[in-house]
């Protein structure tokens, strides 16, 4: 069977500006694919081309086996799309909106309301379902948008920054949905994000796009390994070289050094190594003031592969450093 998404030398220019400039992607069926990049990298433009909302300047793209240019209708029948800015009808209620899109997708007059009710339950909008969409919070709109994208049971789902601006609870709901869709329905998920952490917890494979060009591709672990390792910071008195050497005996730990007020331990997977590291301290009767695990961020990977920090605005090549991406997984990862 063909790949779920397949692009060859895909380009989309706006006048002289090269928003997407020769992208080759292959997303296999049933995969959760993370498409990472800073602001203005070309993520949304790529998604709009793949979903037939925008024509490519050159190159080709197939989605669910259909060509996005010559078989647009078949592509649209196969995909579900939640765009970066949830496009909803503010005057409709959530239920009305889902019913309408069920009807448009070909559900019968009887089935459309049933499917709407099912989806409302699925995304946890039961209380708000009969309120007008304009009264919804940002997170509720995102969830409704996701539900609308699922109405016709698509085989390939495009989610453009589905969790940006969401609180951890709403983010967790979206993550949960994405995982369930893949595991229960075998849906392929093409998900854009600015956060490596998000791709890390969700995606099987990741591609990083910058200024319209793919700069790195691989599994999240492989990408992080490219940049370096997780860092465990321990606040502890009396860190010695001997102690540091003891840490390196823990499987997965690649190095340790004494630092200001404690020790810094490098490990491929900081969360997995943490118990053993703490065990060594405990065995020596050393009290830990504070322990934290941090992973390489998109900025670190980005810096490593491009040699410059991720910029806010790429149109003039300005490379102003962004604030660090939030860590949705929290300090100590499980």
């Amino acid at each position: 069977m063909s790949d779920a998404v397949e692009t060859v030398a895909l380009r989309r220019h706006f006048g002289a500006f090269k928003a997407v400039d020769g992208v080759d992607l292959a997303v296999t069926r049933g995969e959760i694919f993370g498409f990472l990049g800073p602001n203005g990298a070309g993520k949304t433009t790529t998604v709009r081309v793949l979903t037939t909302l925008l024509g490519p300047t050159s190159g080709s793209a197939r989605v669910a086996g259909y060509d996005v240019v010559s078989q647009g209708a078949a592509v649209r029948a196969s995909i579900g799309v939640a765009l970066q800015e949830a496009g909803l009808d503010g005057l409709a209620t959530g239920r009305e909106l889902l019913r309408l899109h069920g009807r448009l997708a070909g559900l019968s007059r009887g089935d459309a309301p049933r499917r709407a009710a099912e989806l409302i339950e699925l995304v946890g909008l039961a209380e708000a379902a009969d309120r007008r969409v304009m009264t919804y919070s940002g997170g509720m709109k995102r969830r409704l948008d996701l539900a609308a994208a699922l109405v016709h049971r698509p085989t390939v789902l495009f989610l453009d920054e589905p969790t940006t601006g969401l609180d951890p609870a709403s983010r967790a709901i979206i993550w949960e949905q994405v995982r369930t869709l893949r595991s229960q329905d075998g849906v392929t998920v093409f998900l854009t994000t600015q956060y490596l952490e998000e791709a890390d917890v969700l995606a099987d494979r990741v591609a990083i796009i910058d200024r319209g060009v793919i700069v790195a591709e691989g599994s999240p672990a492989a990408l992080k390994a490219k940049v370096g390792t997780d860092v465990i910071r321990l606040e502890v008195d009396g860190a010695t070289a001997e102690l540091c050497a003891a840490f390196t005996s823990v499987p997965g730990v690649t190095g340790a050094e004494a630092a200001e007020g404690g020790v810094v331990v490098h490990a491929a997977d900081g969360g997995a190594a943490l118990p053993a590291v703490l065990g060594i301290l405990g065995g020596r009767g050393l009290a830990v003031g504070r322990a934290s695990v941090s992973s390489p961020t998109l900025d670190d990977v980005f810096l490593a592969v491009t040699g410059r920090p991720a910029g806010h605005d790429d149109t003039d090549g300005a490379a102003d450093v962004r604030a660090p991406a939030p860590h949705p997984a929290g300090g100590v990862r499980s």
Partner: peptide, 13 residues
């Protein structure tokens, strides 16, 4: 303006 037009364009109609 609201982006809903895109949603209509994406519907299989």
């Amino acid at each position: 303006d609201s982006g809903y037009f895109d949603k209509l364009l994406l519907a299989p109609i």
